[in-house]
Design a protein around this nucleic acid. Structure first.
Length: 416
DNA sequence: TCTGGGGTCCTAGGACCC
DNA sequence: TCTGGGGTCCTAGGACCC
């Protein structure tokens, strides 16, 4: 291999749990879980008992009776996550953030200033540890895929550098599940073919993999197993969709339940879009039933929309259609609204020139203008006085038991 | 007292156009 | 009248990631 290993993948260890242990040192060395009904993150001490993110709190307590549940300090997660990623930014502008606690960086252009990639990685780890008090694992390799696998292998609190000459050896005995894009389903399909390790994967023809997993997935996997990964670091990627969802427990599938929820969700989504001057042409809803089966319905419009009322009305129509297709389902457990086909929202102009979105141009009524203007006025009030200051009556829902908004915001991707 | 919330990408079939 | 092929867009569902 002629290229050098300059891609870094940095991943904070058991992030939320580590922050809690940092804020309260009495929790150090103890099995803790962030969350309540659902485990959002588990400390390594808790992971040793089989506790992991996404698990129900009840199941976690079963596995580890001495498990300590702690409330989330969401502001601190955001602040410390930002600060850790900012350390990467001190070395190069080529930083691609994947989530609150994880990022890639390409240090090819700054080794003359800061030394070899291995040294840069070691410095990053030391700085995050001393300046922020958090453990972080780092992988260094020639490609994003290898760097990501390396950081997973480095965990907890380690550094792994994959020499370009040793890539095949490094990957050979690792389980296929470590590959980015291989989840439970693919893993099971590969296992059925006797393929357990990345080495075995590399021995399998691309054609066979495509027949097991489908064209695109097979091709991609084949390339990764053979160490071909052309992906570059992309510092700021524009979002392609924005959505919001809400688990409801078990509720009757009637308008009195779904209407206020849809308005609330539409309001969440569209206010995020408007904040970035974005709008979208496709509105999608998702309805989950008591047996966890879910159906989706979508509608694509001629022009992008971002007004709360418009999206809420479309969502309502789509949900009614989905329910009409499943008259046997009397109970719903989740509703989701998302907007895709995103594009720039043209500035609102009073003259209504051509090119304005449909909701602004609605013939005769000027309804669109009114809707969007009302929303923009409301957005301003909320910016000054907070979300709860003003809103649509139809969107008023009882949020008891639902996930706090602070956590929702953590999960939100920057729409760019 | 089953399983949160926010995303990306792919597939397959149908509509429609040339 | 019947048949064919390619391209694009849309819809619904699903796998996967953090």
């Amino acid at each position: 291999m002629e290229t050098e290993a300059t891609i870094i993948h940095a991943d904070l260890d058991a992030f939320y749990a580590s922050v809690e242990q940092l804020l309260n040192p009495e929790l150090l060395g103890k099995p803790i879980a962030v969350g309540g009904g659902v485990v959002l993150a588990a400390s390594y001490e808790a992971k040793a008992f089989g506790v992991h993110g996404g698990m129900s709190g009840r199941k976690a307590r079963e596995l580890c009776p001495q498990l300590i549940f702690v409330g989330g300090h969401f502001r601190e997660y955001q602040r410390l996550g930002d600060a850790a990623i900012a350390v990467l930014g001190d070395f190069t502008p080529l930083v691609e953030r994947i989530s609150i606690d994880e990022a890639f960086a390409d240090v090819a252009g700054c080794t003359h200033l800061f030394g070899a990639p291995r040294d840069i990685a070691a410095t990053i780890r030391a700085r995050v540890r001393t300046e922020l008090g958090l453990p972080i694992s780092v992988g260094v390799a020639r490609t994003k895929h290898l760097a990501k696998v390396a950081s997973q292998v480095a965990k907890p609190d380690g550094l792994v550098v994959v020499d370009p000459d040793a890539e095949s050896v490094f990957l050979h005995d690792l389980p296929v599940g470590l590959i980015w894009g291989v989840g439970p389903v693919s893993e099971a399909r590969l296992k059925a073919e006797g393929i357990l390790t990345i080495g075995q994967l590399a021995q399998t023809s691309s054609r066979d993999l495509q027949s097991f997993l489908g064209t695109a997935a097979g091709e991609k996997l084949s390339a990764l197993a053979a160490n071909r990964d052309p992906r570059k670091i992309l510092p700021q990627v524009r979002a392609r969709s924005a959505g919001a969802q809400s688990a409801l427990g078990r509720r009757p599938a009637v308008a009195a339940v779904f209407k206020p929820t849809l308005w609330h969700l539409a309001d969440r989504v569209t206010s995020r879009l408007r904040a970035k001057s974005l709008a979208g042409r496709t509105v999608t809803v998702r309805v989950r039933f008591a047996d966890m089966r879910a159906v989706t319905r979508s509608a694509t419009l001629d022009a992008p929309v971002s007004a709360t009322v418009t999206v809420a009305e479309i969502a309502e129509t789509l949900v009614r259609a989905a329910l009409a297709d499943h008259p046997e389902e009397r109970t719903i457990t989740l509703l989701a609204v998302s907007v895709s086909h995103l594009g720039e929202q043209p500035a609102l102009q009073l003259e209504l020139p051509l090119g304005l979105p449909d909701e602004v141009r609605r013939p005769g009524t000027r309804q669109g203008v009114a809707r969007l203007s009302a929303d923009m006025a409301m957005d301003k009030v909320r910016t000054r006085f907070g979300r709860g200051a003003v809103g649509y009556a139809a969107a008023l829902i009882n949020e008891r038991g639902s996930v706090p908004d602070a956590f929702r915001e953590l999960a939100e991707k920057d729409l760019g």
